[in-house]
Simulated scan of single mutants.
Amino acid sequence: MPRVALSSPPLDPKVADLVPADPAVTTYDEEHIVTYLRLLDADAEGADWRDVSRILLHIDLDRAAGRARRAFESHLSRARWMTEQGYLHLLRGGV
């Protein structure tokens, strides 16, 4: 079987307000896998969502607190989905 070169995901991609709600892994998910891992780590450490939104998602809470909260919750939820279901799609070869 020929080897396929996998590209590395960006380390700090720009985030959308909401993640895709697709039942399969999307290109967005693959580009944000590092973000998802960082979110899961921050959640496991009990980090405050405001700090995570500011540092990890780069959203200014003074200007967009609602957006920051929605983006945080959306991305964390998708990160959890990736650990429960999405990873199977990646193991099969991804998008």
Score class of each variant (00 low, 15 high):
residue 54 R to I: 03
residue 2 P to V: 06
residue 81 W to R: 04
residue 18 L to M: 14
residue 74 S to H: 10
residue 94 G to L: 04
residue 34 V to E: 08
residue 13 P to D: 00
residue 15 V to M: 00
residue 33 I to T: 12
residue 83 T to S: 07
residue 3 R to Y: 14
residue 17 D to K: 09
residue 15 V to Q: 00
residue 53 S to V: 02
residue 94 G to K: 03
residue 22 D to M: 10
residue 14 K to H: 06
residue 4 V to M: 04
residue 59 I to P: 00
residue 60 D to G: 09
residue 86 G to R: 01
residue 91 L to T: 00
residue 3 R to T: 14
residue 82 M to I: 05
residue 26 T to F: 00
residue 13 P to E: 00
residue 5 A to Q: 11
residue 15 V to A: 00
residue 26 T to Q: 00
residue 88 L to I: 12
residue 70 R to Y: 15
residue 5 A to P: 07
residue 52 V to I: 10
residue 62 D to F: 01
residue 93 G to Y: 00
residue 68 A to N: 05
residue 27 T to Y: 12
residue 80 R to D: 04
residue 93 G to M: 01
residue 40 L to R: 03
residue 29 D to H: 01
residue 40 L to Y: 04
residue 14 K to F: 02
residue 74 S to Q: 09
residue 78 R to M: 01
residue 38 R to M: 13
residue 46 G to S: 08
residue 80 R to L: 04
residue 44 A to I: 04
residue 31 E to L: 06
residue 46 G to Y: 10
residue 7 S to I: 10
residue 84 E to C: 05
residue 83 T to R: 06
residue 4 V to T: 05
residue 21 A to G: 13
residue 64 A to P: 06
residue 35 T to Y: 04
residue 62 D to A: 05
residue 82 M to S: 05
residue 87 Y to E: 12
residue 6 L to E: 06
residue 65 A to R: 09
residue 83 T to H: 07
residue 58 H to Q: 02
residue 51 D to F: 15
residue 26 T to K: 00
residue 23 P to Q: 14
residue 29 D to E: 03
